[in-house]
Design a protein around this nucleic acid. Sequence first.
DNA 1: ATTTGGTTACACAGACCTGTGTAATTAGTC
DNA 2: GACTAATTACACAGGTCTGTGTAACCAAAT
Lengths: 202, 202
Amino acid sequence: MATLPPKPAMKDRILETADRLFYLQGIRAIGVDTIAAEIGISKRTLYNHFPSKDALIAAYLERRFVPPRASDKPPAEQILATFDALERRFAAKDFRGCPFVNAVAELGPADPSVRRIAIAFKESRRLWFRDLLHQLGATDPEALATQLALLVDGSIAQDLVRNDPAMARAAKEAARVLLANAGVVLDENAAAIAKKPQRAAK
Amino acid sequence: MATLPPKPAMKDRILETADRLFYLQGIRAIGVDTIAAEIGISKRTLYNHFPSKDALIAAYLERRFVPPRASDKPPAEQILATFDALERRFAAKDFRGCPFVNAVAELGPADPSVRRIAIAFKESRRLWFRDLLHQLGATDPEALATQLALLVDGSIAQDLVRNDPAMARAAKEAARVLLANAGVVLDENAAAIAKKPQRAAK
DNA sequence: ATTTGGTTACACAGACCTGTGTAATTAGTC
DNA sequence: GACTAATTACACAGGTCTGTGTAACCAAAT
């Protein structure tokens, strides 16, 4: 009988598999045959869902574009937690750098659409930093947000070649210094302090 | 027979052309035919000088590996000048990111030799930073050198996607803050100050 | 003038790639 | 059962790629 929902998501399965293979092994290194074979479908089915490999690549990158979600945690914590999350991702076996940077590096300047979405992604993260810094009353949130973005991308690039999650911690330490220099109050117990609306210092 | 100048010109021409094409358009995007055609030689000649494309790729990366040269300028200036040089390179039309990071991103984890040389390059720069920081008496030169390397690679990655030389200036500003925080004296006239016979100067 | 070594033209093998055409097959729906 | 829509197997066109084999060619040194 209906062993499977008729249209659960063939398209999703294709995208999911393409994502994994593209990201881990490179876009140019993976052919559509490989993707179809990995799922166990025919190449024809894949082309029934995506008109071309380029369309699949575009969908892959768009799927990777998840804007940083808002949080109710203290802004300073959110910023620093970014680097903790990075460190966790670095430690994972399947981390292979920033998919957008990699795609630009691979596809080169020939593909402007790839560059467009990569720019959008980088900018969205920069703006996320900027707004948090603004909430914190940092001096020159615009410039500092850019600098934090540099640290994020720098640690990603370094980890890509070195496979060393400590790069995330180094970035975090640098971020701490930059934040302090911008007048942001940084305390190890910042979370606890923020939770208790007291003004008493420790 | 004593002198057999095997015309190094040809091999160099091949390498030079391969370098330009590989770097600007990507290693996978350029075939050996394209390289040979660009020089105006036959593909056979190319294969007479390099046994395989992989060998050519390896030679290309090794050629790109130029360790930072020593200088007699004040260490702090050398460090900051790194970012000025970056900004100049970003502004150039033919800048396309770090060739080592790009190669790792392109060739993926399949090629361990590419990763090896990329690691060596990154480490050589880090050590160059570290030694300068040591001369400057910075606190924890080891950690700070890593952080400066993050800024360098971060600005390169950001410029790769954004095409914005200002990323180098942002990195320089961040570097200034980190240096100051490590106790390094930073003055716009640092050069003049350092020139004055302070202590054991050459 | 003959040997020698690098080079050339060119064909070709063997892969792999994207993308299509087609007819048969399945499964869910009326 | 009949209709519909997705999927399948499979062949194939046309392209690109790496790498090799071969015979001719050219220049300079012997």
